[in-house]
Design a protein around this nucleic acid. Structure first.
Lengths: 347, 347
DNA sequence: CTCTGGCACTCTCCGTTGACGAGTGCCAAG
DNA sequence: CTTGGCACTCGTCAACGGAGAGTGCCAGAG
């Protein structure tokens, strides 16, 4: 008995089950796929596949359903990422063009992914730590407050207000602000964020006491922006799609929604990609370490300007999902977003 | 038969039903509340309440359930907003303190509301159109691009990148930027947004051709920030709470989740508050014009610095909700957020 | 050794039935 | 206007049984 045919059977089971969402039996299989063997033979293969843990029968007398391991084999060995049609590609690029800023890019991306895959879309904001400082602007507000605007090469902008503790409206104050602006950008602009952070800390040590207080406040605020967990952000869309695929989830979708609200764990999950940054990563059901997401699969991929992977995006859906198509969509969107970041980078 | 008692009966029905989530019968009612009359009398009152359309019996032989109209009477005439305990008040203020910027305030607020009420929380960003310009900063990026950073009195910050079409790195370019920065802030800083927009447009007309091109680009970008629907934003949290209250929703929670993803309609809904901006507004079930939200109630309230109502926040839950407590939470949070905006305003 | 047809067996699914109980509506009396 | 009583209506639940789908296994054929 050839192992090849057994895998064909597995593939057929996955395909049928994804399409019909009902356990697939030996008879239905031979009818729908021309396997060239009889139902009895398929039954023997199925028994073996079950021994290997790739499929599973809900009850004694129901058809078979792929296990997480079965999907894994399907994804790794039995399927190819289905290329998108030209119409879809055009739709993607059109939808993403015309975004006015990074927030808008992220927002459009997540909606696009959700509607494209009809699943829950997850997009991570470009990480600050993996980015380069483009410019730091200081804007005096009121008497003693200073707004720090941090502009990063990915287009992301963060701002903080700090209390400088001395007047900034007099001539001396204005001079201080302008001096700080110049010095800070001298050491930080165009430099990777982590490097900029150390450079800035060194800068504080070098300056005179007169200027040190204000500069310290500014530098520590910039440091805070990184340390906080807020630095990393995710945006979701398409939660309603979970309800649509209701029968796929054993109890309710409650635990899944709860897990999705834990952005911190979600970010950790997105961070753990496969080795090759240019490949779509798939995490299936129980492979997923997060409680509540063990009946779901996460299809994700990194994106970023140039070869640098600054963040990830992906979709989350039931393990019973059309992996080839979903992977294609995720990959296409990730590439387009990277392109757009590249363009913005260039400006 | 006194109308008073009939309303007592209605109140008792609402309270019991909210607590047990099961239709309440005449016998259970006289046991749990000391109404001083017999079950038969209550039954007569119930029959009348049903005629008035305030309660409804799912089947011939089940207890009664309040209708949307019944809840309306309960909210308007039979209940008082339950004041929060000091512990809760402290928890709210502590949770909201320590927010580093407006994004953080909004983010914390929506999470707080969701966990406080165990329902879906909705928070609208302070509207730009109803705000005052605090400062507009221009930051040259690369050769010919200019980043416009718009800082508003509520703490909201928006940025756009525009292509100026001429070099900004030479001396002349730098002079232009600094000239524009000065002029723009002269007319726009400290002024309500709508006024600022017209002032800026007038400014464009006054200047020489040499400077007009750049200024036009900047002003139109600022105008865009307002016109776009993106100007209005909402943030949600606690969708998982919908699943928890599963039995309250006839079919699934799918349609509700879908409606929640339509931010535009949500915003419209939040915009239609009651007359008095200092009162909690309640929209119950079918009073709600949005498809998909007609099995839910929205409890909302405006907030903003000073007496100005710059945006709304609220929670959305099943019509079978503890209105007094929910209204108290929404009101308390709205007030605290307003306070915080006031403080930021002062800086 | 592999494939195939046949057959008994095991489950789930679904509609039926009947007892039970909760709750009502109505009536006549207080 | 209120109250106790009583017949009646339905929904819920468990038990039942037939139908259908699908399996495992076996014996025979390539």
């Amino acid at each position: 008995m050839s192992e090849d045919r057994r895998l064909m059977v597995l593939r057929a089971i996955v395909q049928d089950y994804v399409q019909t969402s009902e356990p697939v039996g030996s008879k239905a299989l031979v009818e729908r796929h021309h396997l060239g063997v009889s139902a009895a033979t398929v039954r023997n293969d199925m028994a073996l596949l079950e021994e290997e843990g790739l499929i599973h029968a809900p009850h004694t007398s129901a058809g078979r359903v792929p296990t997480d391991a079965g999907y894994r084999v399907f994804v790794d060995r039995l399927s190819a990422v289905k290329p998108l049609g030209p119409g879809e590609r055009r739709a993607i690029s059109q939808f993403l063009q015309g975004a006015v800023d990074l927030d808008d890019v992220v927002d459009r991306t997540v909606r696009l992914l959700a509607s494209l895959t009809r699943q829950v879309a997850v997009v991570q904001y470009p990480s600050l730590t993996r980015s380069t400082v483009r410019h730091i602007e200081l804007v005096p507000l009121g008497a003693a407050h200073l707004m720090i605007v941090l502009i990063v090469n990915t287009g992301r902008v963060e701002q903080r207000v700090v209390d400088i503790g001395r007047s900034l409206v007099d001539a001396e104050g204005e001079a201080l602000v302008s001096w700080m602006r110049t010095r800070i950008n001298e050491v930080a602009a165009g430099v990777p964020f982590t490097v900029a952070a150390t450079q800035l800390r060194r800068l504080v040590d070098e300056v005179d006491d007169a200027e040190r207080a204000g500069l310290t406040a500014v530098v520590s605020a910039l440091g805070d922006a990184l340390v906080e967990e807020r630095e990393e952000r995710v945006v979701l869309a398409g939660q309603a799609n979970l309800a649509r695929a209701g029968t796929d989830f054993p109890r309710t979708i409650g635990p899944i929604l709860e897990a999705l609200e834990e952005h911190v764990t979600l970010l950790r999950l997105l961070g753990q990609l496969g080795d090759d940054p240019d490949l779509v990563s798939v995490r299936i059901g129980s492979e997923n370490p997060v409680t509540g997401l063990q009946t779901t699969s996460l299809v994700s991929m990194g994106y970023g300007s140039g070869s640098e992977r600054v963040a990830s995006l992906g979709v989350l859906g039931p393990t019973r999902m059309d992996y080839p198509t979903t992977m294609a969509s995720v990959r296409a969107v990730a590439r387009y977003v990277s392109e757009i970041l590249d363009e913005n980078q260039a400006t």
